Computed example of a mutant assay.
Amino acid sequence: MYPLDFVRTRFQVNDGPVTNCPTYKNTAHAIFTITRLKGMKRLFAGFFPSVLASSVSRLYISSLRRAKQRYFRNREERLSPSLHLASAAEAGALVSICTNPIWLIRTRLELQNPLHQSRPYSGVYDTVRTILREEGWTALYTRLGPGLLMQVSHGAIQFTAYEELRRIIMVDYEERKKKPKGASNLLNSFDYAVLGGSSKIAAILVTYPFQVIQTRSQQQPSNEGIPRYTNS
């Protein structure tokens, strides 16, 4: 699915003729234009930092969720919606602070354009070295604010919606099928797919503007060292 993620990032900063960037009509046209000009390999620019950041994020959030669930299970208490919200918000904030430099590198690699930079990045190491040399280490945390807002709200909405929808469905199943609580076969794979998709859509609809702002803010400065935007 990474090529779609790559195209999404391009759409988020695409201003067409205003900045001498290619104008994409739709997703298919964007993929065709990029592959025609740069080849299929270009659709996977920034793949390694993206996988690394996603893995760290998912691992930490899942670990925190399981730890808190075990804690409350040992105390024979159930996590309330407010606790789900707080847990996801806490995880989102810490993940955003830890992974912001990785997402910045990924964004820079995805948005490379010869018209906007004197020398293209040759890889992850070259990207980090160039940013540190030309912009300083603080550039790795460019526009951390919208990233924090996105991660905190996105994770909070997604996991709260997921847990509450799962609880509602399981209660409904228990009433209709009269199965005991805790039965492992209450939900099937399709149910979990619907739960995951629904909660993700809800989170994306609310937090997508933050993502656009963050992506635009993380663009490489012009050749004169002037940032694209002064603030969020």
Score class of each variant (00 low, 15 high):
M1R: 09
M1A: 10
L4Q: 01
F6G: 12
V7A: 09
V7F: 05
R8Y: 14
Q12F: 11
V18G: 04
V18C: 06
V18N: 07
C21P: 10
Y24S: 00
T27S: 06
A28T: 14
A28G: 10
A28E: 13
I31A: 02
I34A: 08
I34S: 08
T35W: 05
T35P: 00
R36P: 11
L37Q: 12
L37N: 10
K38W: 12
K38N: 15
G39N: 01
K41F: 01
R42Q: 12
L43N: 02
L43Y: 02
F44I: 05
F44P: 07
F47A: 09
P49Q: 00
V51L: 15
V51Y: 12
I61R: 05
S62E: 14
L64A: 03
A67C: 06
A67H: 12
Q69E: 11
F72D: 11
N74M: 04
E76C: 10
R78K: 15
L79S: 10
P81Q: 01
H84W: 00
H84E: 00
H84Q: 03
L85G: 03
S87Q: 15
G92V: 01
A93D: 00
L94K: 15
P101I: 02
I102Q: 11
I105L: 04
I105V: 08
L109Q: 00
L109C: 03
P114W: 05
L115C: 07
S118M: 07
R119V: 13
Y121P: 08
D126A: 08
V128A: 13
T130I: 07
I131T: 15
E134W: 10
E134S: 11
G136A: 01
T138K: 11
L140A: 10
T142R: 09
R143C: 12
L148N: 03
M150S: 09
Q151T: 04
V152N: 05
V152Q: 03
A156C: 00
Q158Y: 00
Q158P: 01
T160P: 03
A161C: 06
E164P: 05
R166I: 06
I168R: 14
I168K: 13
I169T: 14
I169M: 14
M170N: 06
V171D: 15
E175N: 15
R176F: 03
K177S: 14
K177V: 12
K177H: 15
P180G: 09
A183P: 01
L187Y: 11
S189T: 11
F190G: 08
D191P: 06
Y192M: 14
V194S: 08
V194P: 02
G196V: 07
G196K: 03
G197M: 01
K200I: 05
I201F: 00
I201G: 03
I204C: 02
L205F: 06
V206R: 01
T207R: 00
T207P: 00
V212S: 09
I213V: 10
Q214G: 05
T215K: 04
S217D: 10
S217F: 06
Q218I: 04
Q220V: 01
S222P: 01
N223M: 08
N223R: 09
E224V: 13
I226F: 04
R228F: 08
T230A: 15
S232V: 10
